[in-house]
Nucleic acid binder design. Structure first.
Length: 644
RNA sequence: GCCGGGUUAGCUCAGUUGGCAGAGCAUCUCUCUUGUAAAGAGAAGGUCGUCGGUUCGAAUCCGACACCCGGCUCCA
C-alpha cells in the first residue's frame, strides 16, 4: 500500500506506507531533513520517526519556525522534568507546555526551588542533552496510563480528564519515553535530546494547579529554548532591549513620574514633564471627543453607599473597591471605582427624549480600585487612574450604527498616537452568570461582530468572557517591538438601565429603555502613558514630547540670543528650553539627546550676527548650520503640531 | 491575596567571618567660555525601608510590617 503526499508547492509524491516523516524530508532535501523537527500530515503534526499511514497535505516543520521552536521547547520541558525528577526524588510534576519564547513545567518538590537548584537542574539538563537520548512514543489505554502514573497525582488527574473528554478519537493516551523518564504527552517531540542546542532556565515562580487559586500552589520553572546559540542570544538581547524600554525606568530617567513608597502601592505622582505629557494627551482626548458628538461632564470622587448598591457594584465589585468612609453620623461613602453611576445620574437629572439619543457623556474620570497587592505594576496596573470614560445612552435600534461610529473613532485615536496594528477580542455571554434577554444579547453580540467586520479589525471570540451585564470588545495594539497591550474597551450594558430604571420617551411617546455603551479608548491615561513610553522607548512624537526643543548657547555671550530664540519658538507653539548650564556644547547636546528632545538648536557668534541657528533633529544626528531662525521656528511649529 | 527574590546617598550599585559607611553618575562651588554624545578641581550628601528582638557591638543574624521586582490569580 502506498501513500500520496502533497507538498506545499503542490507537487505530489508517493511513498511506501509506513515511510517516516524524516525519510520523506530527506528525500526532498538533505538540508531540509537536517532542520526538520516534525512533520505535518493532513493537518496533524507527527514525530519525524513516526510512520506515515495516510494521504494528505505534507509539510516539514523546521526548527527555525515558531511551530518548530514549539516542538523544541516542548521537548526541552520534558528534559527539564527529567532533570528535576532525577535530582529531587519524590517530586511530582504537572504540566509543561511550550509558550511564547519558551516553556515551563510545574512541579511539587515539597519546597520552592532556589537559584542554586536552577543551576543544578540546568547542569543535569546539559548532561541529558549530551547523551542524546531518543524520544520514543508509545500509546497506552487509559487504564494502563493510570497504572503507569499511579505515583503522580497530577498526571492521573489529567488522564481522567482525557477519559472524560473522549470523543475526538481519544480512547487512550500517548506517552513519550526517554530513558527511564516517561511523560504523558500528545507530542510531537524531536527525535533525540541532542537536538537541543540552546536551552536556558530563566526563573521560578509559584503557580496554582490548573490556574485555580483554590488549588495547591506548585513551583513553576520557566525556560527558553532556541534552534541555536545565536537565536538564543538574539532573544536575550531582545529582553534587554525591552528592559531599557521599561516605563518605570524611563519614568525616572525622563523625570516624568514616580511611585514614592510613602505614597502607597499603585499610586503615582506626576512630575512637571510627565504632567505636560498627560496634559497633551488629555487635551487631545477632550478636543476629539467634543468634535465627535460627546458632551464633557465632571463627577466627584466619592458617592454614598446607596448609589453603589443600586448600580450593583457593592454586590459584584466590592472586592475592587476601597473600604467605606463613614461621614455625617453613619452615612457611608465609597471612593469611585467606576464613573458609570455618575453619568447615569446626569442622564436621570431630567426626562429624556429619543431626540437626544444617542447621548454621549464623556469624562476624564479618576477612579480608585483596590488592586490586590501582588498585581500592581507601575502605571500599567495602578490603584488610582484616570479613564477617558464615556457612557453612551442609545436606543436599541441605533446601537449598531453607534458601535460602528465608535469603532472608527477608536481606531482614529489609536492611529493618531502611532499605533497601527490592532487585534480585538469579542467577549460573549456566559449563560450562567448574566442578566438580560437572549434576544438582546444576541442582537448585541451580532452588532459588535458586525462593527468589527466593517472596521476590518481581526478579532477572536472569547466565549463566555463577557461581563454579567453585556458583551464587550477589547482592543489590543501591537507596539514597536511586537508586544500586545490592551487599551480600549467597549462594553454593552443592559443591566444599569434596568437597575436605575432609565427611560426615554420614544417617537410614539412610549417610555422605552435605552441601552448603555460603556467605553474607554485610551483605557486609562496612566496605562496609556506607560504603553506609549514603552512603544516609543521614551522618544515621543514631537507633539507629545514634554520639551520639544532645546536651545544650546555655545558660550555665555550667546545666552541672551538663545533665550530670544526660545521665545520665538514658544510664540510658534513649540515648548523650548534654553540649556544655559556651564558645560561644553558636547555635554549639553548629549543631555538633550539622552532626554530624547526632538530638536536641538545650537547658537554661537555667527548665529547671533545673522539671526540663524544650528539645528539637529532627533531623527537624524546630522547637524545643519546657519539656518534662518524664522524658518526653523516655522518648521518646528509644524513638526510639533498635534495630529488634530 | 499566593510563591520566590529584594530595599545601602537623588540614580545605578559595592560593602569580606557581626567591629569607624563606599564608588560612579547627578547636585553645589570654583576655574575654563566652549560649535554638535561626558572639560578640570573641590565640597556637600546616609535614621543602611520601618519597628521590634538577639548581641559588649547589627547595614550584616531573627521576626513583624511597608514598599519594590519576577511569576500565579485577577484586571483599564
Amino acid at each position: 500500500m502506498s501513500i500520496h503526499l502533497t507538498l506545499p508547492d503542490g507537487t505530489q509524491r508517493a511513498y511506501e506506507g509506513g515511510t517516516t516523516g524524516y525519510e520523506v524530508a530527506s528525500d526532498i532535501g538533505a538540508g531540509l531533513a537536517k532542520a526538520a523537527v516534525a512533520v505535518s500530515v493532513d493537518g496533524e503534526t507527527l514525530d519525524l520517526n513516526r510512520p506515515i499511514d495516510r494521504d494528505g497535505a505534507f509539510s516539514v516543520i523546521t526548527e527555525n519556525t515558531e511551530e518548530g521552536r514549539a516542538v523544541l521547547r516542548h521537548s526541552a520541558a520534558h528534559v527539564m522534568a527529567q532533570a528535576v525528577l532525577d535530582l529531587f526524588p519524590g517530586a511530582t510534576f504537572a504540566i509543561g507546555p511550550p509558550i511564547t519564547d519558551g516553556f515551563y513545567y510545574d512541579f511539587d518538590i515539597g519546597r520552592p526551588f532556589t537559584p542554586e537548584d536552577l543551576d543544578r537542574i540546568e547542569t543535569r539538563m546539559q548532561e541529558i542533552i549530551e547523551i542524546n537520548q531518543s524520544f520514543d512514543r508509545e500509546e497506552l489505554s487509559i487504564d494502563e496510563a493510570l497504572e503507569m502514573f499511579e505515583d503522580q497525582p497530577f498526571k492521573t488527574e489529567i488522564i481522567r480528564g482525557v477519559d472524560e473528554a473522549e470523543g475526538a478519537g481519544t480512547d487512550g493516551v500517548s506517552i513519550y519515553r526517554n530513558d527511564a523518564f516517561v511523560d504523558l504527552c500528545r507530542g510531537p517531540h524531536i527525535s533525540s535530546t541532542g537536538r537541543l542546542k540552546a536551552v536556558k532556565l530563566m526563573r521560578t515562580s509559584g503557580a496554582y494547579w490548573r490556574g485555580d487559586e483554590n488549588k495547591p500552589q506548585l513551583q513553576r520553572i520557566y525556560g527558553t529554548a532556541w534552534e541555536n546559540r545565536k537565536a538564543l542570544r538574539t532573544y536575550l538581547n531582545r529582553l534587554e532591549e525591552a528592559e531599557k524600554r521599561d516605563h518605570r525606568r524611563l519614568g525616572v530617567e525622563l523625570d516624568l513620574y514616580s511611585f514614592p513608597s510613602d505614597l502607597g502601592s499603585g499610586l503615582a505622582v506626576w512630575h512637571p514633564k510627565g504632567g505636560l505629557l498627560r496634559k497633551e494627551i488629555e487635551d487631545y482626548s477632550r478636543r476629539t471627543h467634543l468634535a465627535h458628538g460627546y458632551e464633557y461632564v465632571v463627577s466627584p470622587h466619592v458617592a454614598k453607599a446607596d448609589l453603589w448598591q443600586t448600580s450593583g457594584h457593592l454586590d459584584f465589585y466590592a472586592e475592587g473597591m476601597y473600604p467605606a468612609m463613614e461621614l455625617d453620623g453613619g452615612q457611608q461613602y465609597y471612593v469611585k471605582p467606576m464613573n458609570c453611576p455618575f453619568h447615569i445620574l446626569i442622564y436621570k437629572s431630567r426626562s429624556r427624549s429619543y431626540r437626544e439619543l444617542p447621548l454621549r457623556l464623556f469624562e476624564l474620570g479618576t477612579v480608585y480600585r483596590y488592586e490586590r497587592s501582588g498585581v500592581v505594576h507601575g502605571l500599567l496596573r495602578a490603584r488610582g487612574f484616570t479613564q477617558d470614560d464615556s457612557h453612551i445612552f442609545t436606543t436599541v435600534d441605533d446601537m449598531g450604527d453607534e458601535l460602528q461610529r465608535l469603532l472608527d473613532f477608536v481606531l482614529m485615536v489609536l492611529r493618531d498616537f502611532g499605533f497601527d496594528e490592532f487585534e480585538a477580542d469579542l467577549s460573549t455571554r456566559d449563560p450562567e452568570k448574566s442578566i438580560g434577554s437572549d434576544e438582546l444579547w444576541e442582537l448585541a453580540e451580532i452588532s459588535l461582530a458586525k462593527a468589527l467586520e466593517r472596521a476590518q479589525l481581526p478579532y477572536q471570540i472569547a466565549h463566555g468572557e463577557g461581563s454579567f451585564y453585556g458583551p464587550k470588545i477589547d482592543i489590543h495594539v501591537k507596539d514597536a517591538i511586537g508586544r500586545r497591550w490592551q487599551l480600549s474597551t467597549i462594553q454593552l450594558d443592559f443591566a444599569q438601565p434596568e437597575n436605575f430604571n432609565l427611560t426615554y420617551a420614544s417617537s410614539g411617546n412610549v417610555r422605552e429603555r435605552p441601552v448603555m455603551i460603556h467605553r474607554a479608548l485610551l483605557g486609562s491615561v496612566e496605562r496609556f502613558v506607560g504603553v506609549l513610553v514603552e512603544h516609543y522607548a521614551g522618544a515621543f512624537p514631537a507633539w507629545l514630547a514634554p520639551v520639544q526643543a532645546t536651545v544650546v548657547p555655545v558660550a555665555d555671550r550667546h545666552t541672551e540670543y538663545a533665550f530670544e530664540a526660545a521665545a520665538a519658538l514658544g510664540a510658534g507653539g513649540v515648548r523650548a528650553e534654553v540649556d544655559a548650564a556651564d558645560e561644553t556644547v558636547g555635554e549639553k547636546i548629549r543631555r538633550s539627546i539622552t532626554q530624547k528632545v526632538p530638536a536641538i538648536l545650537v547658537v554661537g557668534d555667527r548665529d547671533v550676527e545673522g539671526r540663524t541657528v544650528g539645528l539637529r533633529l532627533r531623527e537624524n544626528d546630522e547637524e545643519q548650520r546657519g539656518l534662518s531662525l524664522d524658518e526653523v521656528v516655522s518648521d518646528l511649529s509644524g513638526l510639533c503640531a498635534p495630529p488634530r
